[in-house]
Design a protein around this nucleic acid. Structure first.
Length: 637
RNA sequence: GCCAGCGUAGCUCAGAUGGUAGAGCAACUGAUUUGUAAUCAGUGGGUCGGGGGUUCGAUUCCCUUCGCUGGCUCCA
């Protein structure tokens, strides 16, 4: 009675009973896989394991190992959580509960105010429900019927969602007494959910609109084994341990004060990092033929009206008055840079003309989004504006991609690229947008770089390429950007003299590499957990005398190293060597030089490397040589 | 900005159903002179984020304000 044929994942065709579920088919063909399967893909459509195939379906099992599998797993866990919440807090209304990148959430509307203290009870209930081995049952009903059902249950949010669905039929998912509007698919049973944890509670506007009611969102994550969950939770702990706000305080790098919220204060050691980063940046830009300028922080309102910021960016700007005239604190560097361009007549021979500026900008960000050095209200962009002819775009963009990559590799970051295209409210003709976008695309394609396209996500004046750094914990940070701009040259009537001696309109390119110096420093701190590469470490060497009588030898060493341009500190505390080592380790100082009677007699030091331990004795000269090489090569720890 | 939680010594944190606070580390002083992640002892240090209210009395309860943390993007 095997009456239909299906195509398996390995390409084989096989006959199956038309009534067999996907689950049964999998079990028959590959019991091990059936054990792991969470759902299936039939002809590319995701289906429940309890579903049945159609003639000719191409079947593929979905497991937790794939993104799709995780999504289904997370989504089912969110249903499980919602069930638990409704059982514990009857009358709770459900909004939405999707899977997200590393877990799930569900938005609830209830009188009860959730706090993390409620999590153990909810988790307990979830465990209990999971153990019951409740199947996730799909039920397809007429939309009207679903509306009536959810109206009777007072699920106003579900009704609102239903009213926006145009299909005649919708699917519901049931597990036990719990019922939810859901497209599916889901796990076969709650029992598959082996390990989960609720992580945080937060407010979230219904449909993300601040005019709507604020709901309570509970975030969580789940895994198909306890070990995987533990591993994930360890990763979160590790991220906490690396938090740049914590390390910045411990290592005395920077601070924040009530007297200027969102405005970071850089301490001496933080300034060392900053200055080294700037020096490196300047040197590399010089090699690439950049000029450097510095434009004022406060500029007349008229400039900002001309640039369009007054209309488009006012909400984010700070203002002030000078001699009764209105001024703005710059939120971007371009208008000031353009004034420099206009200060003099330019020839095509200067193009591409690369003008860099480490520009301090101020932006009024909502208080709730501020976050350490990552999101501040004043920061230094490593900006540059490149003026050129349209036919120079591709080459220049390729140069830039290379240049950006060089910076990121120096710090050991992986990165990926995204390309954003014309948005709804774009300025300029389709033709010029097409040309601009394809220039960027060509530049990327020719370099055989893969990139993700964000349709409609470009700036209103041009398409852009964004660089997203990936740190050692797999988190990604947007840093660099390359934006093509046809608008500003127009608005400011920029021109150059072309080969024919005529006035012509240049194309402008805005770009950053590090993005914001402050933010980049924050990212570096987290990437290296405070243990920065020796070349950029605030203190490179700490000298640790065994006993007080060795301090004078230490003072000589200090002078020697200092004269060699090495950032060095002498520990004169009356501590045992173990304590001195501990302090230096905690301060993340790359090298410790230890010396007592034995070393002094032979004019040696014992080298200890942070995190690695004792490297044995060395002459001072040999140590200096090695550390100089490491600094020169910008060796990563 | 909105929701929730939090704010106690330089740092990390404890604490009292309302009777004006405590530990560890750090700092300082002294002893010790130390050999690869914390030597011992002593001392000083706080308007318990700010303001207001209730009270005989508030750091504790209430209101308000400021700040910090997580989130408010992933659309059944």
């Amino acid at each position: 009675m095997k009456d239909i044929s299906v195509v398996l994942w390995n390409g084989e065709t096989t006959k199956v009973n038309a009534q067999s579920t996907f689950n049964e088919i999998l079990k028959e063909i590959n019991p091990q896989l059936a054990q792991k399967a969470l759902a299936v893909k039939a002809n590319g459509f995701k289906k429940d394991l309890y579903d049945v195939p159609q003639e000719g379906d191409k079947i593929e099992a979905i497991t937790f190992d794939s993104e799709e599998g995780k999504e289904i797993f997370f989504h089912s866990t969110s249903h499980l959580m919602a069930q638990a919440v409704q059982e514990l807090y009857p009358g709770t209304k459900l909004a939405i509960g999707p899977a997200i990148a590393e877990g799930f959430y569900y938005d609830f509307d209830t009188e009860h105010t959730f706090t993390p203290d409620d999590f153990p009870a909810i988790e307990g209930k979830m465990k209990e429900l999971a153990k019951k081995d409740l199947p996730f049952q799909r039920k397809v009903v007429k939309k009207e019927e679903a509306v009536r059902l959810f109206e009777s249950k007072g699920e106003i949010y579900k009704v609102e969602l239903l009213n926006e669905i145009t299909d005649e039929e919708v699917s519901l998912y049931l597990q036990g007494d719990f019922i939810d509007l859901c497209r599916g698919p889901h796990l076969p049973s709650t029992k598959k959910i082996k390990a989960f944890k609720l992580l945080s509670v937060a407010g979230a506007y219904w449909r993300g609109n601040e005019k709507n009611k604020m709901l309570q969102r509970i975030y969580g994550t789940s895994f198909n084994s306890q070990e995987a969950l533990t591993q994930y939770l360890d990763m979160l702990e590790e991220a906490k341990r690396r938090d740049h706000r914590k390390i910045g305080k411990e290592l005395d790098l920077f601070s924040f004060h009530d007297e200027g919220i969102g405005f970071p204060f850089f301490h001496h050691k933080g300034m060392i990092i900053r200055n080294l980063l700037e020096n490196f940046w300047r040197e590399e830009h010089r090699k690439q033929g950049y000029q450097e300028i510095k434009t004022p922080i406060i500029l007349n309102k008229a400039l900002w009206i001309q640039s369009g910021h007054w209309d488009h960016y006012k909400e984010n700007m700070y203002f002030t008055k000078i001699d009764d005239q209105d001024f703005a604190i710059k939120p971007m560097n371009c208008p000031g840079g353009i004034l420099v361009y206009k200060n003099k007549l330019h020839s095509y021979k200067e193009f591409p003309m690369r003008v860099a500026e480490l520009g301090l900008v101020h932006r009024h960000e909502l208080s709730g989004v501020l976050n350490g050095l990552f999101r501040v209200r004043s920061f230094t962009q490593d900006d540059a504006h490149i003026y050129m002819m349209p036919n120079q775009i591709k080459q220049e963009v390729q140069n830039l991609i290379e240049f950006e990559g060089f910076f990121y590799r120096t710090f050991g970051f992986d990165f990926h690229i995204e390309l954003s295209t014309k948005p709804e409210n774009a300025m300029g003709s389709d033709e010029i947008w097409e040309k601009a976008t394809s220039s960027l695309k060509d530049a990327l394609d020719e370099k055989k770089l893969s990139y993700k396209i964000n349709e409609g996500d470009g700036a209103f004046y041009g398409p852009k390429i964004d660089f997203h750094l990936k740190d050692c914990l797999g988190r990604s940070w947007q840093c660099g950007t390359i934006q093509l701009d046809f608008l500003m040259p127009e608005l400011f009537d920029l021109y150059y003299i072309n080969q024919l001696g005529e006035k012509d309109r240049p194309v402008m390119l805005h770009r950053t590499i590090l993005g914001s110096l402050e933010r980049f420093i924050g990212i570096l701190i987290e990437q290296f957990a405070g243990l920065l590469p020796t070349w950029i470490a605030p203190v490179q060497v700490r000298l640790l005398p065994i006993a007080d009588r060795h301090i004078s030898y230490g003072k000589d060493l200090e002078k020697t190293l200092n004269d060699q341009g090495i950032r060095v500190e002498l520990d004169e505390n009356n501590d045992k060597i173990g304590a001195k080592i501990r302090n230096a380790e905690l301060q993340k100082i790359p090298y410790m030089l230890i010396f007592g009677d034995k070393e002094i007699d032979d004019n040696l030091v014992r080298v200890r490397k942070q995190g690695k331990g004792d490297l044995g004795p060395s002459t001072v000269d040999s140590f200096i040589q090695k550390i100089h090489l490491e600094i020169k090569n910008k060796t990563l720890p």
